[in-house]
């Protein structure tokens, strides 16, 4: 049997979206050492903001920009009080925040449509004939992935990026050098959250539909697995990680026909394997595939 070309295209779209999403996390964790366990919240906030604004009559392209900015602002809003906390506390607070955001989406039907979610919103590229829509979407996603990658590359090689790296390596040294560590961390999480917002918006366009279930805490861990697999602090590694991750996800999703196993069971087994992968990576290769062992300091 032949794997349909459309199947590969939809896989690549998801790969691109999650690569962008994970690049945002890598900026925060890999380059700044911020232990954000609520990344998915900004994924959802970006998507919901754009869709709600659009449904209120804001033109879609303006709504996209607004959604990205709102996601970034929420990043600042969470980080302002929480950034003073220890790393492990920050992780707990952010994961809690992402759950609160999800409860909000589920409960505030007047705004979010509740468990039924939102549909009927404008989609960019709607001028493209429907048989070519997916390929156009893929091109858009990959272009935005390339753009995100290049912007991050330029930023990380700028003086700003070097400060971030020094914060990751030794916060006390950067403090002693007179850098306002707090401000740099806030900037990093703002940008990382905005990038997550962009990824979320793209996912909404891909599904043409929004639903609170897309924003389970598990999605944050997808990003973590992608970043750690590729190597924390390595953007090329993150993109490679996303590719491996989605290939694995779709291969196992694709096999029900060949294995004597139900799709629920298969989904569960897939997550067991991902969990085991995370454990094995932490035990034997915490620096990931492309990470630099010398440079990596997982515990700061």
């Amino acid at each position: 049997m032949a794997i349909g070309i459309s199947y590969i295209i939809s896989l690549l779209i998801l790969f691109g979206i999650y690569a962008i999403f994970a690049l945002g996390l890598n900026l925060e964790w890999g380059f700044t050492g911020i232990l954000n366990f609520g990344h998915v919240a900004f994924f959802g906030i970006g998507a919901y903001s754009t869709v709600i604004l659009n449904q209120m009559g804001v033109p879609i392209y303006i709504a996209i920009v607004a959604g990205i900015i709102i996601a970034g602002l929420f990043g600042v809003l969470v980080a302002l009080p929480a950034m003073r906390l220890r790393g492990d506390y920050f992780a707990i607070v952010t994961i809690g925040f992402s759950e609160i955001v999800r409860y909000f989406m589920l409960n505030e039907e007047w705004l979010t449509g509740g468990p039924l979610g939102l549909r009927d919103f404008d989609i960019p590229l709607s001028f493209v004939p429907s048989q070519y829509y997916n390929i156009a979407m893929l091109i858009l996603v990959l272009a935005l992935l390339a753009l995100t990658y290049l912007i991050l590359k330029a930023l990380i090689n700028s003086p700003w990026g070097r400060v971030l790296k020094s914060i990751r390596e030794d916060e006390d040294v950067s403090k002693a050098l007179g850098k306002n560590v707090f401000r740099y961390k806030i900037q990093s999480i703002a940008l990382g959250s905005a990038i997550a917002g962009l990824a979320g918006i793209l996912l909404a366009f891909n599904h043409k539909y929004l639903n609170p279930n897309y924003y389970m805490p598990l999605i944050t861990f997808y990003a973590w697995i992608i970043v750690i697999l590729g190597g924390s602090g390595n953007n090329k590694g993150t993109i490679l990680g996303a590719l491996i991750f989605w290939t694995f996800m779709s291969l196992t999703r694709f096999s029900p026909g060949y294995l004597p196993i139900s799709s629920t069971d298969l989904g569960a087994l897939r997550m067991v394997i991902i969990g085991l992968l995370l454990i094995v990576l932490m035990m034997y290769k915490p620096e990931g595939l492309l990470g630099n062992k010398e440079e990596l300091k997982l515990d700061i």
Partner: peptide, 22 residues
């Protein structure tokens, strides 16, 4: 260190929960 342990614990959580679902 504590962050390595924390990420490992998340992996373990995924394993236990999904073995239960399985």
């Amino acid at each position: 260190g504590s962050i390595t342990l924390l990420i490992t614990a998340i992996g373990l959580a995924l394993v236990i929960r999904n073995l239960i679902v399985f």
